[in-house]
Design a binder for these strands. Structure first.
Length: 425
RNA sequence: GGUGAGGUGGCUGAGUGGUCGAAAGCAGCGCUUUGCUAAAGCGCCGUACCCCAAAAGGGUACCGAGGGUUCGAAUCCCUCCCUCACCGCCA
């Protein structure tokens, strides 16, 4: 049965599980008790059901034997038919209980890592480190003003095409978007050793469940219901699910993937402020890093994944800081997360451009992704992912940080070959 | 979109209503023989779940998925998914 937290762990150490879930806030701890109750009932029924099945199997063979000997078997057949009826009712009840247990399990969040800082919301996220300095600007325009003035994007016409919350890059803006994508893909493939993947953008329901977008967050996703297919909200979905239902060998781990895709999000409930410009939109480009690792190596790989994402900002010479998410702010499936926030002169604040999470075996359990460990046992892999990086906010920070007194934008040296010029004017 | 053929264990591939969790071969693991290699012989070799305090042991389910027929389904019927081939259409 697909699950998320290991039901055996829940059975054996319910108090531990509840205590760790409680650090998130919310009521997932209460769901643990519900699961335990359903689990106990389910197992009782399952045992009874198996005994009935065994009996039917035995008697049916006996029927076969008698028939081949031309002996009467009518009373036996009658008896088996009765057992069959019992099995049918019990099987139905067992299936219902199983379904209920699965539903509950799918909606319980992952346990935060024991080292994750305790806190109730984003204000309690500690800053782990920061890099670079805020650029010294005498006069600051924000990205909307800059971008509009220089013709880098056209938000009004984007709205005409698709409604609010969409970007239409134009001219040098479109070129800059493309340059950033290529710059990041080249960096991660050539210098950091990731395998580039160009996946489908539409994915099946199973995949969305695998990476935890469903069932809990369906209202945030664009779905084409008639086909039960969804627009991926992040490349994490198709890429992490790449090896779903597989058993990998230890020597092919870690798997390191990088993918550029557009990302589609309804952002339901976030209409209002904060939506000005290109900082929160329904469709945006992102370069995503994904790793599949062994249990032993996952935190080591997580740190290096974060370092790989940070490298983008360093090479672009953008000031940023690294936050660790506290338990109350941690995403549903994550055990531990670092956020990268780039400095935006125009917003006079930091913008999240990457969220790097270790899901441990939470996603792997859901997608049945395993590997043979050193003893040859099938073990759920650990999955990690992080943006490397998300484009619109990076774009905004980049043009704001590079703005010159004369209204032009100076591009970082490393990006110039990809863009084909040193500045935009 | 149409027509046809298929989906069986890590792989190949038998099996068309009962004793089949599934022949055989290959690959893998162990042992024996051998001066090494090669080869041969023998044995082992799926997953999940349940019972049991645990081990030992026992049991159930799984032959693409889900339903149905039957005393009994890998095997018969229905629906769906997927693969392959040809045709049509199309970036």
């Amino acid at each position: 049965m697909a699950a998320m937290l290991d039901i055996r762990l829940i059975r054996e150490q319910p108090d531990l599980v509840k205590a760790r879930l409680t650090t998130r806030g919310g009521d997932d701890a209460a769901k643990v008790d519900d699961v335990l109750q359903v689990d106990a009932e389910r197992r009782k029924m399952e045992t009874a059901l198996q005994q009935l099945n065994a009996e039917r199997k035995r008697l049916s063979k006996e029927v076969g034997g008698r028939r081949s000997r031309n002996e009467s078997s009518t009373e036996l057949e009658e008896r088996v038919r009765e057992i069959g009826d019992e099995i049918a009712t019990l099987a139905e009840r067992t299936a219902t209980a199983e379904e209920k247990q699965k539903t509950l399990l799918l909606e319980i969040a992952n346990m935060p890592h024991t080292d994750a800082p305790i806190g109730k919301d984003a204000s309690a996220n500690p800053v782990v480190r920061s890099w670079g300095k805020k650029p010294p600007l005498s006069k600051v325009e924000d990205h909307v003003t800059l971008g509009t003035k220089l013709g880098l994007f056209d938000l009004e016409r984007a709205a005409k095409l698709s409604g609010s919350g969409f970007i239409c890059f134009t001219g040098a803006g479109a070129r800059l978007e493309r340059a950033l994508i290529n710059f990041m893909l080249d960096l991660h493939t050539r210098e950091h050793g990731y395998l580039e993947i160009s996946p489908p953008f539409l994915v099946r329901r199973d995949c969305m469940i695998g990476t935890t977008q469903l069932p809990k967050f369906e209202e945030d996703m664009y779905g084409l219901e008639e086909n039960q297919i969804f627009l991926a909200p992040t490349a994490e979905v198709p890429v992490t699910n790449f090896h779903r239902e597989e058993i990998l060998t230890m020597k092919e781990l870690p798997k390191k993937f990088v993918a550029y895709t557009p990302c589609f999000r309804r952002e339901a409930g976030s209409a209002g402020r904060e939506t000005r410009g290109i900082l929160r939109v329904h469709q945006f480009d992102k370069v995503e890093l994904v790793k599949v690792t062994t249990v032993e190596k996952s935190y080591e790989e997580w740190e290096s994944l974060v370092a790989n994402a940070e490298r983008v900002l360093q090479l672009l010479n953008l000031h940023y800081r690294v936050l660790e998410l506290c338990t109350g702010d941690l995403g549903f499936g994550s055990a531990k997360t670092y956020d990268l926030e780039v400095w935006s002169p125009g917003q006079n604040s930091y913008l999240e451009v990457s969220s790097c999470s270790n899901y441990e075996d939470f996603q792997a359990r859901r997608m049945n992704l395993r590997y043979k460990d050193a003893e040859g046992k099938n073990t759920f892999a650990h999955t990690l992912n992080g943006s490397g990086l998300a484009l619109p906010r990076l774009f905004a920070a980049l043009i704001e940080s590079g703005q010159q007194r004369d209204g032009s934008i100076r591009l970082p040296e490393k990006l110039q070959p990809f863009f084909g010029a040193a500045e935009i004017r």
